[in-house]
Write a protein that binds this DNA or RNA. Sequence first.
DNA 1: CGTTGGGTTGAGTTATTTCAAATAGTGTGG
DNA 2: CCACACTATTTGAAATAACTCAACCCAACG
Lengths: 243, 243
Amino acid sequence: MSASQSYIHCQNCNFSHLCLPLALNTDEMDKLDTIVKRNNPLHKNDYLIESNTPLTSLYAVRTGSFKSYIEDDDGEYQITAFHFPGDIIGFDGLREKRHVSQTQALETAMVCEIPFHMLEDVAEKLPNLRNQLMKFMSAEIQQDRELVMLLNKRNAESRLLYFLISLSKRFEERGFSATSFLLPMTRTDIGNFLGLTVETVSRLLTRFQKNGLIKVEGKALEILKKGDMEQMLTDYHINIDSI
Amino acid sequence: MSASQSYIHCQNCNFSHLCLPLALNTDEMDKLDTIVKRNNPLHKNDYLIESNTPLTSLYAVRTGSFKSYIEDDDGEYQITAFHFPGDIIGFDGLREKRHVSQTQALETAMVCEIPFHMLEDVAEKLPNLRNQLMKFMSAEIQQDRELVMLLNKRNAESRLLYFLISLSKRFEERGFSATSFLLPMTRTDIGNFLGLTVETVSRLLTRFQKNGLIKVEGKALEILKKGDMEQMLTDYHINIDSI
DNA sequence: CGTTGGGTTGAGTTATTTCAAATAGTGTGG
DNA sequence: CCACACTATTTGAAATAACTCAACCCAACG
């Protein structure tokens, strides 16, 4: 561990309330902390995980952001998640102890690496940690299923609204502004994730802006009418033109 | 436990190779077996799990089939999975120890109930069982993500093909015919799951039949050209009319 | 024997995609 | 720091896959 990073521990991490330490007491956190490796930063487009490689570690995002995607034989790919600080990456590989997706940095980013065999050892002694791991996986299942519903039942407008609102919430949970942030991913990434074309995403962002819901300028997004946007998601009969 | 059911154990269950016992030795299986409750059969449309109820048990399907779905405030619902013998139901509720989806029998069906607090106790002593649980959850995440890709990237034809092929595989794994089986769910259910309308599902089934891929008569399905169907899924540029 | 739920088929509509083209932005090597 | 190349984004017009609406059939069932 380099000197410059030696002071970083779960105990003083800004995102521990979202991360694995969540349910652990100080002692337990110390145990977890001893197995965490904190590596050099990754840069934009660097791979954190390549698919089909053996699963040796899980990763917790410390700073920056990532996208994970699966790819089929035709090279067609599907972004399955965007990851922000506190998120744990790698659960989909547990089944075959082999990564089934790729994870790439969207910007300069750092992670905490948690070697899997050591995590298993620690978890052996810490029921809380085991529980926490299960909860994380369960949450992922729940989220994926909500995404399926979104894709199957909602139109392009709702999907993008949902995406923006959910980003906003995630930034807020992490102590960032809920109403003003940078989109770390491209429009193409957003479209890929939501099952829309780039063109549709772009057109909708423009339309949201014209209707005064948001302000976009490149990567910079400002959410102007969060309440209205949230309501459009709940009562999905309301659409953007009724605002 | 009723006398008529007392002879049923994981050891002599036809589906243990797909179920929790998969990675357990005989001793371990015995331990698991002692906590499993085998209840009376459920009938078509009976609820196995109602949403928002506390999670007290996981369930393993023993016979018959189920559908699970999430529902939003508008009453709109999304079927998230169909379950067949050996499948474990309930992982999405672990996060909040509360079920987030409903599970309903598609036909007369029986389950093995696994009380969750006892499962945790047993898992405490059996690393293999813990592992198996994680693998099941990880598999569910993986499957859900493949479903997202299917919904986002494939057209109606591919989606339904995928559905039929995946049913076929699941029946085969369970020792049933891979080419001739009954669809336990309605066309509406299939459409709901795949993000299509009933009409589209019906039209496609008719078309598949006209092109000689399958034979359908009500619930009865016969898969005539499995190879062709699988290839259409792999090379998704090939479509039904090129067969 | 009327009612109800599931399924099929046809015709017209529409949300989103595709294709095309122009503009803006970013990074690299000289 | 500029020029060039490449990628990302926006906007418009035309095409289309799947949906909606409507009608009808069939089987199960009280």
